[in-house]
Write a protein that binds this DNA or RNA. Structure first.
Length: 756
DNA sequence: GCGCGACTAGGCGGG
DNA sequence: CTAGTCGCGC
């Protein structure tokens, strides 16, 4: 492909970013401004025009899905298949684990982590944190392991080691506990030969510290380092990319400070704000034309984000047509909210040319998805929930995976404990028997599971009662047998052996619908495993376990996986786009969330982050945007009156159509100030009529259709325009399809192509 | 050692 | 409300 083709369709700013020369580059990219496009074109440009070998480019994305899509795009741009192979691309975590796996010798010598280390998921980390809390003599019920974990995670992301924490970061009793739990947690993690998510970023840095020569090798190799969603990087990630790009200094970062929504995960917005201080010779490019959304949606987003105080003033503009008004709707409670959404989606699906996959329903908390899911289940609209309980976090799936993990890493006591507690194989073994085996294991310098496996050959081993002894022997012999077979069997056959030999398969009650559902989840795991059957058993097991640990919810959203409405949290929705978006629960306490409101007087940051989250949601919408809130909501089992979110007051009147009884712009939860009352009186609020657009931007006319023209629709196929009614900024069409008869569609929504 | 009902604390976001 | 834990009786 020629250079002009590589730059074809890019605007001036996008081209400038793509073709920027060497040195640090900061791309500040508004929503829908084509940043993924810029990144892919940049990589393709480097390979093709600058003749950079793909394996000398490192590209970091926020999700695996984004990495996948970008790779596809680059392949397409470069034409020939495989042209992008060798590119190092993925999330920070997957790149981190790659560094560790590539250097097993140094990792094991210097960091004490054996090559068969496991990545502990959230649940494993929780179990370990709980044990750590108990080990330091505290009660896990009062200490909230979850809170401990987040403190530990925060420390790790700021590169504070347990000993540094103990030395420099204790200011009160609470810190004292955290410090001890942190030390114990990390010790237990190493003992289990496991790492947590933060370790995947921290350990590579420790690796580089321990082996500076190795860092030099990587520094030399990576001629170009590109980072997406830079506003959401934390300190460790910042240091990692700085270190890797230090030699050639070709660091290309893309981000949007207004979309920074991960401060709670220690993302540090200063990384992007201070980029030019860190790299004084940095070039800066702004992408501010939005290609995604209608002018009304862009104007709404812009108006909402402007009310943040701590913000760099920025432009957001579009050349797109006005589109429809943003619909704001008040409902009496969450059930009516769900009903409204389902009803509205049904209306759009029937005859407005909308297909289910074009629609997303977004919410602040996963708890909100339950009511929505219920409404969708009753309706005949296909839907899919992203997030919530992940597949791999389901109890029955974790139970089986625990066996796989233990077979791979015998030091993994957390998994062994799962097996003992949850599988029929562990029946008859209580804490006492396990403790006795552990004592014996320690004496003989074995891991706990190795000790169990050694039992059949050492009948005189640990002290055990008659029944406990039989159970322990059984466990040991089954594990030893599975372990031996794990090197020969494909993963799906290993699965069969595991569910059979542990008695798990037989433990599901065939008369219980619920248990049969759980068993079918277990079987789904089996079909997941067959994807690895081509690989040699020795490689498949670690590859599969790694995939399980690093796959995110959004990663499983597949572009080919069509035909359903998406239910998703606002956080997960970052980076996605949908023609039709519903943002639900615009209420004080939910969006903004209570925590942020409580902190508001000491610290305005959390509220500002909530507003950015709302902004992220708004900017996901291409054509139609609905915003809903309720007057009453059941939360944590109690029904409470809910006040409309303060963010509703930022919505620009001229672009919204308010269908509620109360006007969206007025907060009901507090007395309006005199000024506000004055303004309300002046403008005649509350009111629900649509006000005409004031100071409308110059907008190019949208594509229009005429009666008789032939068109193609992705779902209905070929058709002829039968009627065309002009609306303010759109056309309502009646199209006669050859195979589906007459459908009424909105020109802006239906993905029609004119057939010449 | 297991299974059950009673009780309590938390209550968001995710690689 | 729901998940997790306690404490009891078996």
């Amino acid at each position: 492909m020629a250079i002009q083709d590589l730059l074809h369709g890019l605007n001036a700013e996008q081209s400038a970013a793509v073709t920027a020369g060497n040195g640090p580059v900061l791309v500040v990219a508004g929503p829908g401004s084509g940043k993924t496009r810029v990144l892919s074109h940049r990589v393709a440009y480097l390979i093709q025009e600058e003749h950079v070998s793909p394996d000398r480019i490192l590209a970091v994305t926020f999700t695996n899905k984004a990495a996948r899509e970008m790779r596809d795009r680059i392949e397409r741009l470069l034409g020939t298949g495989g042209a992008a192979s060798g590119l190092v691309m993925g999330t920070f975590h997957s790149i981190g684990v790659r560094f560790l796996r590539q250097n097993p010798g140094i990792v094991s010598d210097r960091l004490g982590i054996l090559p068969n280390f496991l990545i502990y998921d959230d649940g494993d980390q929780m179990d370990l944190a709980k044990k750590a809390v108990i080990a330091v003599g505290m009660d896990p019920r009062q200490l909230a392991p979850r809170r401990m974990l987040s403190r530990v995670s925060a420390a790790k992301s700021m590169l504070i080691s347990p000993s540094e924490f103990a030395r420099d970061h204790i200011t009160n009793y609470d810190d004292e506990i955290v410090s001890r739990v942190y030390a114990e947690y990390d010790r237990a993690l190493r003992k289990a030969n496991a790492v947590d998510f933060d370790d995947l970023l921290v350990l590579p840095l420790q690796l580089f510290d321990a082996a500076p020569k190795l860092l030099e090798v990587y520094q030399e190799r990576f001629l170009h380092v590109l980072v997406d969603e830079y506003q959401d990087t934390n300190r460790v990630q910042y240091i990692l990319v700085s270190a890797l790009s230090a030699k050639h200094r070709n660091l290309f970062v893309v981000g949007d400070p207004d979309q920074s929504i991960y401060a709670w995960r220690q993302a540090d917005i200063r990384n992007i704000l201070d980029f030019e201080q860190d790299f004084p010779d940095a070039k800066r490019v702004h992408l501010e034309i939005n290609y995604r959304s209608t002018a009304r949606i862009v104007a709404t987003a812009d108006r909402v984000i402007r009310d943040n105080k701590q913000r760099i003033e920025r432009l957001l503009r579009t050349e797109n047509s006005d589109g429809e008004h943003v619909i704001v709707r008040e409902l009496s409670d969450q059930n009516h909210e769900a009903q409204f959404i389902v009803g509205e989606i049904r209306r759009l699906l029937n005859g407005h040319g909308v297909t289910p996959e074009q629609v997303a329903v977004m919410y602040r908390t996963t708890a909100q998805s339950r009511v929505l899911e219920e409404a969708f289940r009753i309706s005949d609209i296909p839907y899919k929930i992203v997030g919530g309980l992940r597949f791999y976090e389901r109890k029955e799936v974790k139970d089986v995976l625990a066996v796989f993990k233990l077979l791979y890493n015998p030091a993994d006591e957390i998994s062994l404990a799962r097996i003992v507690d949850n599988l029929p194989l562990g029946r008859g073994l209580g804490p006492k028997a396990v403790d006795n085996v552990r004592t014996w294991a320690t004496l003989n310098n074995l891991t706990l599971s190795e000790a169990f496996m050694a039992l059949p050959g050492n009948p005189g081993g640990p002290e055990l009662s008659g029944s406990g002894k039989a159970a322990a022997l059984k466990l040991g012999s089954v594990l030893a047998n599975l372990r031996q077979r794990s090197t020969e069997l494909t993963l799906s056959h290993l699965f069969d052996a595991v569910v059979e030999d542990t008695g798990y398969k037989g433990s599901f009650d065939h008369d219980s619908e619920e248990e049969m559902q759980r068993w079918s989840n277990v079987l789904e795991l089996r079909s997941d495993l067959t994807r690895y059957d081509e690989m040699s058993p020795a490689d498949a097991l670690p590859a599969y376990l790694e995939q399980v640990a690093l796959v995110a919810d959004v990663d499983q959203l597949d572009a080919n996986d069509r035909g359903h409405v998406t239910l998703i949290t606002l956080h997960s929705a970052k980076g996605l786009e949908f023609p039709v978006v519903f943002i639900t629960g615009l209420e004080e306490g939910l969006l903004p969330i209570n925590r942020a409101i409580e902190a508001e007087f000491q610290d305005p940051q959390p509220i500002e982050e909530e507003r950015r989250l709302f902004y992220v949601g708004i900017t996901r919408a291409e054509k139609l945007l609905y915003i809903t809130y309720t007057g009453m909501r059941m939360l944590y089992g109690r029904t409470q009156m809910s006040a409309p979110s303060r963010f509703l007051a930022s919505l620009p009147e001229q672009h919204i159509k308010s269908l509620g009884t109360r006007h969206a712009g007025i907060n009901q939860h507090r007395q309006p100030s005199l000024m506000e009352r004055a303004k309300q009186t002046a403008s005649g609020l509350p009111q629900a009529t649509v006000r005409s657009m004031s100071a409308a931007p110059v907008i190019p006319p949208p594509r229009t259709y005429a009666v008789g023209e032939r068109v193609f629709h992705p779902k209905f196929g070929e058709g002829v325009i039968g009627e065309a009614i002009d609306r303010r900024s759109d056309q309502e069409l009646a199209v006669d399809f050859a195979r589906h008869g007459r459908k009424r569609l909105l020109a802006s929504l239906a993905q029609l192509d004119l057939i010449e």
